[in-house]
């Protein structure tokens, strides 16, 4: 299309900002960019010093607070050994010495994962870890446990041996009895393998990340007696001293690195 007679063609508009100049933020207006909104919300909800703290309350220096991070350590070994098994295949993990070794590493890291997760769950249950607005921390942890169970089950039926066939034919009756057998067929190896190495691990890892971020956002749950003492001190009835910040003033004051934060 040509320009009308007498009207000069549209010139290329000059660039008022040299390419090397930094972008100028709009003054008095909020950016509508989703990246900016996401960044601002992320920093607001989880400031860097809270996301990656350099100290924990003294009450975290207890063995019962160790099992959350023990679960995560086991999960890392599970993912690593599982990736190697997936790359090498069933003939390798059944018929070679190194394959047996990694097969065993995978199995025993799963055993450790559930062992640590159950002790972690017991510890958090008996200290009522949903206190202080931590309901979502508790809920995501419980969902991780529930999702990890079928993740392990699909692993048992993906072994490619008589054991997996036995487990599949036994467990299919349980699935059929609760009405999920139509889309969760334990005798369908391809489907079980996909669940085991892709869908369910992704779900577990994402839920664990969400769980840890929520722990960081809400802080580690204090023991019940410290919570009660803090409440009393806040009310000024303990010794007359008001506590403004329980992280620095109360009985759970920050005291340097102290192990797990979960």
């Amino acid at each position: 299309m040509s320009a009308a007679p007498g009207v000069p063609p549209n010139p290329v508009p000059p660039n008022p900002v040299p390419p090397s100049a930094p972008p100028t933020p709009a003054v008095g207006t909020r950016s509508k960019s989703w990246t900016v909104k996401l960044r601002e919300r992320g920093v607001r909800e989880l400031p860097p010093e809270r996301l990656l703290p350099d100290g924990q309350p003294t009450y975290v220096a207890s063995w019962i607070y160790v099992f959350g991070v023990a679960s995560i350590a086991s999960l890392i070994v599970i993912i690593g050994s599982g990736m190697i098994l997936a790359l090498k295949g069933p003939a390798w993990w059944h018929e070679t010495g190194v394959g047996h070794f990694f097969n065993s590493i995978h199995l025993w890291s799963v055993e450790m994962f559930f062992f640590a997760m159950v002790v972690h769950l017991w510890g958090k249950y008996w200290m009522a870890a949903w206190r202080g607005g931590r309901a979502r921390v508790w809920i995501t942890g419980a969902i991780v446990f529930l999702v990890a169970v079928p993740c392990a089950l699909t692993g048992y039926v993906s072994q490619q041996n008589f054991d997996s066939q036995w487990i599949a034919t036994q467990a299919k009756d349980a699935m059929n009895s609760v009405g999920v057998g139509a889309f969760f067929n334990l005798t369908n190896f391809g489907q079980m393998y996909s669940y085991h190495i892709l869908l369910l691990p992704i779900a577990v890892v994402l839920l664990v990340i969400l769980h840890v971020l929520l722990v960081r956002r809400n802080g580690v749950v204090p023991p019940i007696e410290i919570d009660e003492r803090l409440a009393a001190m806040r009310a000024g009835s303990a010794d007359g001293r008001r506590v403004e910040n329980p992280d620095t003033d109360g009985p759970g004051a920050l005291a340097g690195p102290a192990g797990d934060q979960s």
Partner: peptide, 12 residues
């Protein structure tokens, strides 16, 4: 579980 409650943590 009970040992984790009862045993002192190193450095606590």
């Amino acid at each position: 579980f009970f040992l984790a409650i009862l045993l002192p943590f190193p450095g606590a």
